[in-house]
Design a binder for these strands. Structure first.
Lengths: 230, 230
DNA sequence: AGATAAGGTGTCAAAATTACACCATTAAAT
DNA sequence: ATTTAATGGTGTAATTTTGACACCTTATCT
């Protein structure tokens, strides 16, 4: 197979919707673009797929180069292929989402000059984004909302040890609606995949809550019946 | 924007998983390829996206050219982007599914020479397919299985007038398991989106069943709360 | 008339879901 | 020391949904 860079008027790219949960809010990663087109605009982390890498591999590389984040589980969710979605040529983009614990995260630092900076932004107050990235975000958000009840979405957003109130807050942020506390706890605990720790929350100015851990193995024993992400 | 055909070593294509239901069996459309690579192999209908058409438009055109079928609702479900999935170059493919009533359908006749013929084949006995088309089929099949309970999948496969037994058979073919007759009927009728006709089934050598019609508007009133296909 | 094949129907138990309110605990403020 | 503010933590009852299960009816064919 001949080695040749793709003609820029026909290329594929990756765009990433990376979700985090912090201070009771759902957030996504944005970058400030440092190159045309849409220089200085806010955008999803995204770039062009190279000739000798799979689309899945490209997703990981691109996220790393633009944000410094590595080893996320990137999940493809849709491909956007309108003719004029990119002002400089024919570029279709494969969109991925991923979930990450913001808390313990190192500083976000773009490796390439393509992004001036990367930062978290609450999903409820997003500015206009470059390209069709607003639409891409909404599609991705809908995906995780749909999958919340059969994939461990919330547990990948929360710290390793979390309280039931934090867990509920995470569900509420994703679903954008209030849930009943007693029913939520009853149901979550009934599954049996939450392990109660002897530890308690620290540094709060009110009664400290019990901490729980997520047991991924038990979770998948329960939900594996279904076809999961395919 | 410059007009140029994509270099063949970097292109995007469409592949289509078209489902039909006939004689109690779930089937998909296959073509017999008439060109290299994989000449003479069986394959999903698929081809290269043109420079000046969106991916969604390409899906409709390509299906038409290879099978003569038109005006289907094509639903994108996954993009396959392994480096070597196409032996002749870098081609990522966007996969679509669609659902169609086989019964009233005109003859399948490829418009281009690219396919020698197009035909229905039961999903339960598929031969090896060209490229990674077997994987694409499985991914698509899983998608419709997942969506069976909140999208009118079965009703797009059945003729306009159908019996409850046919409906159940369609569900069973997609889920690949037997369902309880009384519970199935109770549930389906309880939704209220099935309209009982005064007509009955004809031409059967046993007691004729009542015919029903699907009321799409009522269906979506019930299921629209959810984020549907996005 | 009898055989064959599918049509059509109801009940009960178990499980899951929903609505709903108050006392307990902790740290901070006074 | 007491009070205040904020969240933690808990149970019951009604309703809805699900799942298991068997027999008579109707139409056609021979």
């Amino acid at each position: 197979m001949e080695e040749r860079l793709p003609a820029f008027d026909s290329a594929f790219s990756i765009d990433c919707v990376i979700f985090g949960f912090e201070a009771g809010e759902l957030k996504i990663l944005l970058i400030e673009r440092n190159e045309e087109p849409f220089k200085d605009w806010l955008a999803l982390p995204g770039s062009i797929v190279k000739q000798e890498e799979s689309v899945d591999d490209a997703a990981e590389r691109i996220l790393y180069e633009l944000t410094g984040l590595r080893d996320l589980h990137m999940q493809q969710f849709h491909t956007f292929g309108e003719v004029h979605r990119h002002p400089q040529g024919r570029v279709i983009t494969v969109a991925y989402y991923a979930l990450i614990r913001i808390n313990g995260q190192k500083e976000l630092r773009p490796i390439t000059q393509f992004a001036r900076k990367a930062f978290w932004h609450p999903v409820n107050d997003l500015p206009k984004l470059a390209f069709d990235h607003s639409e891409i975000f909404h599609t991705g958000f809908n995906k995780i909302r749909r999958r919340l009840n059969y994939l461990p979405i919330a547990f990948e957003l929360l710290p390793e040890k979390f309280t039931l109130t934090q867990l509920q807050g995470c569900y509420e942020a994703i679903l954008n609606k209030k849930l009943d506390k007693r029913n939520f706890r009853k149901k979550m605990l009934s599954y049996g995949f939450l392990k109660e720790l002897s530890e308690k929350q620290k540094g709060v100015s009110y009664r400290a809550a019990k901490l729980y851990k997520f047991d991924r193995r038990k979770y998948f024993k329960i939900f594996q019946n279904d076809v999961t992400e395919s």
